[in-house]
Every structure is written in structure tokens, then in C-alpha cells.
């Protein structure tokens, strides 16, 4: 086993453990921490594939920005509310297991026909994904998609601000709804 394989096995196990924690943990904070482990492991895989800049961006965006945002929202929504296991559709959870595992098997079976093996095409000694190489292509060939991404992010920012601006009306609606809904509804939500 080469050193790369050892590193891959270690971080693949970490990634799978993190993902399993994420989908099974009762406490949402544990789920977020599991995804954080997975994201760090994925950054290691990027480094293994010589994509150093993508790895750095991945850690900065996911571990830095996205997970912080998720933790903020989890804390705002209420961390003490553990998910109840009762299902409105009784077979929903086993069916989710079957569908998830089925998708995995299906991907493997479908990929077996055109199974890609072998090593990478060019061994450039780790110079593949440096910031210069990525920037040369990003601001050359991929300039138009890059500008489209800028537009997308602007629209997303404006949309988020707009959603925050619609504050007053939903509050009135919520107050009206709470007045009209029977008090029993509240108890049903709190029950665990």
C-alpha cells in the first residue's frame, strides 16, 4: 500500500463516519459536526488529486461560512428539540434506507460497464491545481460562466435580503393563525 492509499483509507473512513453521524444523529448540532468532519475529509481528497486551490476554497466556504450559517440557524430554531421518531408514513424510514442503498448499488452496477481504472494521465508533480493554473483557465476559457456565477450570487444576496424584508406581514399572519388554530396543536408540536 502506498502512502496515498493509506491516507485515502483513513479519510474515507472519517468521511463515511461523519456522513453516517449526520444522517442518524438526533441532535442537529451533532449532525452539523458530522458534516464538518466529512467536509474536511473531502478537502483531503482534493489535495490527493492535486487540486490544492479547490481544497482551500472548500474548507473556507464549507467549514468556514456554510457550517457557521447552519449552526446559527440550528441554534436559532432551537437545539433542544430532538426529532421524534414517530412516522406519519410508517414505512418511510426503511424505505429511505432501501432507496439510498439501492441508489448506491445502482450506481456501482451502472458504472461497472465502463469501469475506469488506471492512474491519472499526467503526473506533473503536484503542479496541476495551483492557484495560477486555476486562475488562468477560470479567467480565460471560463470567463462567461464565471460572470454568470457573479450574477447568481448577486441575485441570491438580493433574494435573501428581500426575504428578510417581508418581516411584518408574516408576523401578522402567524399571529392570526395562532389565534385561529386550536391550542391542542401546540401540544402536538412539543410532544416528543
Amino acid at each position: 500500500m502506498t502512502a496515498e492509499t493509506v491516507v485515502f483509507v483513513i479519510f474515507a473512513l472519517a468521511a463515511l463516519a461523519g456522513a453516517l453521524t449526520m444522517v442518524t444523529a438526533r441532535n442537529p448540532v451533532y449532525s452539523a459536526m458530522g458534516l464538518l468532519t466529512t467536509m474536511f475529509s473531502i478537502a483531503v481528497f482534493f489535495v490527493l488529486n492535486d487540486a490544492h486551490f479547490v481544497a482551500a476554497v472548500h474548507v473556507l466556504i464549507y467549514a468556514g461560512a456554510v457550517m457557521t450559517l447552519f449552526l446559527f440557524v440550528i441554534m436559532l430554531i432551537g437545539v433542544d428539540k430532538a426529532e421524534d421518531i414517530r412516522e406519519s408514513i410508517p414505512f418511510q424510514r426503511p424505505m429511505a434506507v432501501v432507496l439510498g442503498a439501492g441508489l448506491f448499488v445502482l450506481v456501482l452496477v451502472a458504472g461497472r460497464a465502463s469501469w475506469v481504472t488506471g492512474t491519472r494521465a499526467v503526473e506533473e508533480g503536484g503542479a496541476l491545481g495551483t492557484i495560477e493554473n486555476v486562475a488562468d483557465e477560470l479567467f480565460g476559457v471560463w470567463l462567461l460562466p464565471f460572470e454568470a456565477t457573479v450574477l447568481l450570487l448577486t441575485i441570491a444576496a438580493v433574494g435573501t435580503i428581500a426575504l428578510a424584508q417581508f418581516l411584518d406581514k408574516p408576523r401578522e399572519l402567524a399571529a392570526a393563525r395562532e389565534a385561529e388554530i386550536a391550542p391542542g396543536h401546540e401540544d402536538e408540536e412539543r410532544a416528543e
Binding site: 456522513a19 444522517v23 488529486n49 426529532e83 424510514r93 432507496l99 441508489l103 448506491f104 456501482l108 491519472r120
Partner: peptide, 27 residues
């Protein structure tokens, strides 16, 4: 570094994500 292991790991993580979307109820 052989590519197959990354593809299989990606498929496994994607399948776990599908399971999470189908089974979790907290948005």
C-alpha cells in the same frame, strides 16, 4: 492514485445524502 476508489466513495456519500433527504424531517 487509482480513480475508482474516489468514484465509489463519492457514490456512497451521495447515497447517504439521499437517505438523509428522504428520512430527516428537520428542514
Amino acid at each position: 492514485m487509482i480513480i475508482t476508489q474516489f468514484v465509489i466513495l463519492g457514490a456512497a456519500l451521495f447515497a447517504l445524502g439521499v437517505y438523509g433527504v428522504l428520512s430527516r424531517r428537520n428542514a
